[in-house]
Each structure stands twice: as structure tokens, then as C-alpha cells.
Amino acid sequence: MKVRIGIGIIVFFSVIAIIGPWLNDLMGIGPWKIDYDAIAEPPGAGHLLGTTSQGTDVLAQMIAGTRNSMVVGSVAGVIGVILSVVVGVTAGFFGGKVDAVLSFVTNMFLVLPVLPLTLIVAGYVQDTGPITIALIIGLFGWAAGARTLRAQTLSLRGRDFVMAMRMIGESKPRMIFVEVLPHLAGWISAMFLHLVLAAILAEAGLAFLGVSSADTISWGTVIDQARQVALLNGMWWWFVPPGLCIALLGTATGLVNFGIDEVMNPRLRTADIKAMRKALA
């Protein structure tokens, strides 16, 4: 149940991200359209979530922002996961010198202060769009995952079934892809979700600090703009939706991760209290 809610929320945002522009056209609203008759208007019939102090529609901005936030999240997630799988699994499976070198690199990335570094890089790169931010976050955020995967691979490598497959002469690539990797699927998906959330939060944080492109809209930029005006004027409808979206997505990834944990570790499965009460009554 928990997992289903989580997946539901994630699917919902993904769909919005994909059909966003079309949805806005359909409703006849747009993130840049200014309605001079409705400036800083609270939610109502004309503008379902109200308007900003410039007279743009908050709902339209949210829909457009979902796409960019999700792009940042998934691009960072994919890059981060690929890096952590390549580095972590290679280090864990081959061990020895390969492991020593890769572990050193991993540890180095682990102690890098990511946020200041991101700020510096973002400052150098002209016009920091969502893809740039996703790249930065993905390239700097894989180390923790790589370390977990290394440890897991190391333990899998010593397991009897891997030894047995080695004894019948299985090749190393097949050993990694057919015997070892499938066992890490839970870890990898949990890691991906974690990276997605971290990237969305980081993007919002960066936007909040002013590091963002002027012509893209994301949940982060909406909050940033709202921060400058809305708080002072009590325009809650401006900053609550983006905040809520981030919180919801965070909850969703958490719920899915709980589910993955339960599947991977049956000990966490709790007894069915309701069934017990009924049976013992």
C-alpha cells in the first residue's frame, strides 16, 4: 500500500512533466502569460491556484516547473547511478589494485564539499540551465552510492553461488551482469530515487540562492521568486504549491524506498496486527 502511494505520486509528477506544455495549452494558460486584470490574485475560478505579483498563473508555472524539476532529477539520477554502479561494482568485484584506486577516487569525491563546489562551477558556466545543474549534481553525487555498491558486491563476490559459477568456468562479464548485478537491483533503484530527490532539492536550493537561468521555470525558481515578494504580502498560494510538490515527491521516494527495503529484507515485514487481533478475539 505504502509503495503504491509512493509510486502513484511519482507517476503523477512524471506524467505532468511529459504532458505539461500540452496541458497548459489545453487550459489556455501559460507560465509567461501575464493577466493584467489579475495581479496577485488568490486562487479562484479564473486562476485555479491564483496569480503571482506579475500576474502570471501559478498553476501554469507549477506545470512548467514540474518538467524542469523532473528533468533535473532524472538526469542527475541516471548519471549518478551509472557512475556509482560502474565504479562501485568494478571495485567490489575485482578487488586488489583496481579496488584501491577506485576506492581512493570514491573517497575523494565523498569528502568534496558539493554545494560550494556546485556554486563555483555554476558561477563559471554561462546561463545555468536545468541540464547543467543535473550534470553537476550527478557528477558529484555518486560517491556514497558507489561505496554502498562496492560493499554489497564485495559480499556477493564471496558468496558460495558466485564461487560455484566461477568453478564451472563462467566468464567475468557474465558473472557481473548475470549473477551479481540482479542482486543489487534493489540498492540501485533506491539509490536512483535518492539521487532524484537530492537533485531536485539541490536545484531548488541553488535557485533559492540565485543560481539559475532566468528563462527556465522550476519548482525552485517559483519558490525563489515567491520568497522575494509573496512572504511579505501573505501570498501563500504562490509559495505553498512548489513547497508542497517537493515535499510530496520526497515522501513518495521515501515510501518506495521503505517498500524496497521490505522486499530486500524480509525481517522488516511486520506481523499483520489486524489479522492477529481478529483471529485471537
Partner: peptide, 9 residues
């Protein structure tokens, strides 16, 4: 003694 699960005991 029963092991009680949602699917039955």
C-alpha cells in the same frame, strides 16, 4: 499454535 497472516492462519 497458529501463524496468522492476512491470507489466513
Amino acid at each position: 499454535v497458529d501463524y496468522i497472516t492476512a491470507k489466513g492462519a
